[in-house]
């Protein structure tokens, strides 16, 4: 598959995370899940949040991470980091919806969740998770950068691929065919 590569400038939306400031309140999880619930705000369920706080309280590890891509297979090897005398696992910084763990998967379907920077109409000035993080562990920044753009993958494409990885393409196609006939 090839796609057009062009140079253009665009606004990069960035959430900065200050691990030292996090109080572990999980308000970011609550707000994100509320914003993405359908109908909007109809439930606040951290399991559906696109930001999760990785806790290891005895080791003073509090890491908020946003959901990124989906992977069908966990990493074969992993790093661990020592930062300021504390040990962190690579997974703690990783936003991937991955078989190694439960984060960033819809609890019912297992479909991957991805942070969409609260894309909505009208656009939010500041993403929900940042809005409720009053202690500024999360802060929002925009900057302009020159990028090589490629077609972004659509939500449906990512979802389908995840389903295919779970059930195999054949079963997925069969089911789709069967359901479309019913409809």
């Amino acid at each position: 598959m090839t796609s057009e590569h062009t140079k253009e400038t665009k606004i990069v939306k960035e959430i900065k995370i200050d691990l030292d400031k996090c109080i572990g309140c999980r308000a970011c999880e609550v707000a994100c899940s509320a914003f993405h619930a359908r109908p909007r705000y109809s439930s606040t369920n951290p399991a559906r949040s696109r930001i999760r706080v990785i806790f290891d309280a005895l080791n003073d590890v509090y890491v908020p991470i946003r959901a990124g891509d989906y992977t069908p297979a966990e990493c074969t090897g992993r790093h661990s980091y020592t930062i300021g005398g504390k040990d962190y696992q690579e997974c703690s910084f990783c936003g991937v919806a991955c078989p190694a763990r439960d984060y960033f998967k819809e609890p019912d379907s297992g479909l991957p969740l991805k942070c969409d920077m609260c894309e909505s109409d009208p656009t939010l000035e500041v993403p929900m998770c940042v809005q409720v993080c009053t202690c500024d562990s999360l802060t929002y920044h925009e900057r302009e950068v020159e990028v090589t753009a490629s077609e972004p993958r659509e939500e449906m494409e990512v979802g389908l691929e995840a389903l295919a990885n779970k059930y195999g393409w054949e079963r997925l196609m069969d089911t789709a065919a069967r359901l479309s006939k019913k409809g």
Binding site: I23, G24, C25, R26, D60, Y62
Partner: peptide, 15 residues
């Protein structure tokens, strides 16, 4: 650090 409870912006507990 200071820590808080579920969905509360205060931080009443010292680790």
């Amino acid at each position: 650090r200071w820590t808080g409870c579920y969905n509360c912006p205060k931080d009443c507990h010292q680790a």
